[in-house]
Simulated assay, not measured.
Amino acid sequence: MHAVTALWSPLLCTQGATVSESLERSHRRTATADVYVKPVFEDFFRVELPRLIVFLVYQGAPSAAAEDAAQEAMVEAYRKWPEITTPRTWVRTVASRAWGRLLGSKGLPGELSNDAPHAAANAGPLEKVLQSEQHRDAIAAIQQLPARQRQVMAWTYDGFRPQEIAQILGITGDDVRANLYKARQTLRKTRGGAL
């Protein structure tokens, strides 16, 4: 099982739904009922922020930049919460754009590296996964992929289907599947068949 998947597999709700799916349903019910939405956002934030950071790291963002872009997206989500119909997709799209702006404005300076040491004693569950040797190897392999393949892999690892990814990225489903296939082939070669 993939390290990130393993991190989130215990987060299952009743009736076989994931926490994210439950939050999506809860958000839709809350938005349509015009009920106070702050507790729903707080739950969404708590569950999705770490996942959003990992999503950005898979797209090539260093941990610190991923945290900044994720926080920026969450602040914007809080402001627009009642208007957002698909929060998981929305924050990932906004965070990806924030990462793109940061990348465009700063290029790839030396201080943006993923190998910044973290204090292991104070590390939370996300940091422990990000620090694991297996996860570092996976990130290094993914970051060697072309940008579109990294992007498609990040959305796929986050549980989105090819048709959803195609719609989000504005490309065809066939393009998504082709990029996914090429990325997996490259990763299998890079990682000695383990994917």
Rank of each mutant, 00 (worst) to 15 (best):
P125N: 05
A141F: 15
Q134A: 10
V91G: 00
G60N: 11
A178Y: 02
V75K: 06
V4K: 12
T190H: 04
V94L: 00
D43P: 03
V47K: 06
T14A: 11
A120E: 13
Q151W: 03
V91L: 03
R92D: 07
D175R: 11
V57T: 03
Q15N: 14
E83Y: 10
A121P: 00
A147F: 11
G100E: 15
A33K: 14
E111T: 08
G107E: 14
H135V: 08
Q167V: 00
V19A: 07
Y157L: 06
R101K: 12
S9P: 01
Y36Q: 05
Q131S: 08
T156Y: 14
R46Y: 14
R97S: 11
Y36I: 05
Q143L: 04
V35D: 07
L103D: 12
C13N: 13
K128E: 08
S63R: 15
V37C: 08
Q144C: 06
R51D: 05
D68V: 01
A166Q: 07
R161D: 10
A116T: 14
A154Q: 02
I168D: 04
I165R: 08
A183C: 04
A31T: 13
V19Y: 15
N114T: 07
Q163N: 09
L11W: 14
Q185D: 15
L126P: 06
K38R: 14
D43R: 13
A6R: 12
P39F: 02
M153K: 09
W8R: 08
G192T: 01
A147G: 02
K182L: 09
V129K: 06
S22N: 10
P125K: 03
I53D: 00
R101T: 12
L180G: 06
E72W: 02
M153I: 12
L108Y: 13
R148T: 06
G192V: 00
R28W: 11
R177E: 11
